[in-house]
Structure formats: C-alpha cells, structure tokens
C-alpha cells in the first residue's frame, strides 16, 4: 500500500509543471507579436493597460495550450518531442489540465474585455476556441491541412493587439494575420520533413505521411512563394517603413532560396546530408517571423521619434 503512495507522491507536480502546461515557448511568440500589433497601431495605449492586455492575451494563449495538452495527451505520449510534457509524463492529471485551461480561458477573456474592449476579448475567445476545438479536436487528427487552417490560431495575436489599441480591425491587422498564417505551413512542413518518425508513430496525418515527401516539398515552396507578396505588402501600408521593407526583401529572398533548395532536391539527397537544408529552412523560418515583427517595431519607434524616412 505505502509503496503505491510513494509513487503517487513522486508524480506530484511542482509549480513549474503547471507553468509548462501553458506552453511558455509558444507564449513568448504570442506576447511578442501581440505587443508589436499593439505598438504599431496608430492609437496610443496607456502602459498599464498595454501591460495588462498583453498579459491576458498571453494567459489566454497559455490556456489554449493547456486545453491542447489535455486533449492530445495520447498523441504527446508517443512522440519523442512531446513525451516529457506534464500530462503524458504523469506529473499533472489530464482533468487538472482541462480545469486549468477552462478556468484561465474564462479569466483571460473577461479580464481582457475589462482592460481593453469587447472586440479584443471576442477575438481572444475565438482564438482559444479555434485552437482548442477547431484545430486540436477537429482538424489535427483528420486532415493533412490541419496546420494550414490551424495556423490561424497562431496568427490572431497581432490582430488582438491592434484591436486593444484601436478597437477595430484594419488592412494592417489583417495583413499581419496573413503574414503568420502563410508562414505557418512552410515552417511546420520543414519541421515535418526532418522529424519524420514522430508523426508516423502518433498517426497524426501530416502531409509527409498522407501525400508523401515530394508533395510536401512542393507545398513548402508554393506557400513560401505566396508568403512573399503578403510580407512585402505590409511594407506599403501605414505601419510599413524603410527598415521593414529592407528587412522583408532580404528575408524573403533568403526564405525563397531555402525553400527552392528544399523543393529541388529529392529524398536520397536529403538523407545523405542528414536533412541539412530542411533544418536550415526551419531555423530560418523562426528568425524570419521574429525579424519581420522586429522591423515593424523599429519603424514604429522611428516614427514616434519623428524620424520620417518615407
């Protein structure tokens, strides 16, 4: 008897395990893009209101992460990359993750409505619903287009940030949405190309599994090609500037070159060098998104100091 108790105790969660439930790394991207959306908006926001809004957006994103971990615990347990997450490793019970997810979702949406406005709160609620229900429950296990449509969930934060400041939606916020939305497929498929075994084992219908790797390479290049005009287009709206346009031109050229290489080569060539080009494209995709939003921030800062280079 006592021994079972000891093993139970051994699995008891510390605070860090609950924090890990909120997917802190995804959250950092959400915080950054939401903050950029808020700062580049033409309406100034009081710093305290901005801080609260960003925090509640982050909590909302974390809550949807917890809901995802509750629903996907069975998949996470068999994938190497995710087996150590709090639920599959047994440190946090699945229904505890559900409770935390639901409670934090409600808290985040209500508090964002109070701190900012109803539109921002509505967008946040929709994002959580989209990620937890549409993506995790309906799409992820049923269609290879899962990440394309599911990418919308990750694309909402800058739009929410913009809505916090302006109370509305605009061309600029829609384009920031489109940038992340179009960026998600090449980003994830580059990952899927070199993390082959994981998704196979978990029976997640990634494009690599359902339609083969040749088709995936085609898709990576196709989406990268259609991503470029969206990214450059932002440069010609009110939030764009010389820094953004220059950064975007360089990054898109690099990203296209990387995607071209991944597209042109076949499986034996990729296996020969341990998927070097695919790994490189994946790493580049991370800095691609970060630097685009960083450049928007630089241009907004320049404008606020009255430096109009346009």
């Amino acid at each position: 008897m006592s021994e079972t108790h000891i093993t139970d105790f051994d699995r008891e969660a510390g605070f860090g395990d609950y924090f890990a439930l909120l997917k802190p790394r995804v959250m950092s991207l959400v915080i950054f893009t939401a903050l950029v959306g808020l700062i580049v908006a033409p309406v100034p926001v009081h710093p305290v209101v901005a801080l609260c809004s960003i925090l509640f957006i982050a909590i909302g994103a974390g809550a949807s992460g917890a809901l995802n971990m509750w629903w996907d615990a069975d998949i996470d347990a068999v994938m190497k990359r995710t087996a150590k997450r709090p639920v599959p490793s047994g440190r946090v019970a699945a229904d505890e993750a559900l409770a935390i997810g639901v409670a934090l979702s409600g808290l985040a949406v209500v508090m964002l409505a109070l701190a900012a406005n109803l539109l921002a709160a509505g967008l946040l609620a929709f994002t959580i619903f989209f990620y937890a229900v549409i993506y995790s429950m309906l799409l992820k296990r049923s269609t290879p287009q899962n990440i394309v449509i599911g990418g919308a969930a990750g694309a909402f934060p800058p739009m929410i940030g913009w809505a916090v400041a302006t109370g509305g939606v605009s061309v600029e916020s829609a384009l920031m949405f489109a940038l992340i939305f179009m960026w998600t497929p090449p980003h994830f498929w580059a990952l899927a190309l070199f993390m082959k075994s994981d998704y196979d084992v978990a029976k997640v219908p990634m494009l690599t599994v359902t339609h083969g790797r040749r088709v995936t390479r085609n898709h990576v290049f196709g989406y990268t090609l259609s991503l470029a005009p969206v990214a450059l287009g932002i440069g010609f709206t009110s939030i764009g500037g010389p820094v953004y346009l220059a950064t975007s031109a360089v990054l898109n050229a690099l990203f296209l070159k990387g995607a071209w290489t991944v597209w042109r080569r076949d499986e034996p060539a990729a296996e020969a060098d341990g998927y070097a080009a695919e790994r490189k494209l994946f790493r580049l995709s991370l800095s691609y998104l970060f630097l685009h939003f960083g450049a928007l921030l630089v241009d907004a800062t320049l404008k606020s100091f009255g430096v109009e280079l346009w």
Binding site: F9, D10, E12, A13, G14, F15, G16, Y18, F19
Partner: peptide
C-alpha cells in the same frame, strides 16, 4: 515532495 508542494503554494 514537500519542496514540490511548497513551490506550488509559493507560485500560486
């Protein structure tokens, strides 16, 4: 185990 519990209590 008490350390983990304390971390939880302090964190919350």
């Amino acid at each position: 185990i008490h350390k983990r519990r304390r971390s939880r209590n302090v964190g919350v």
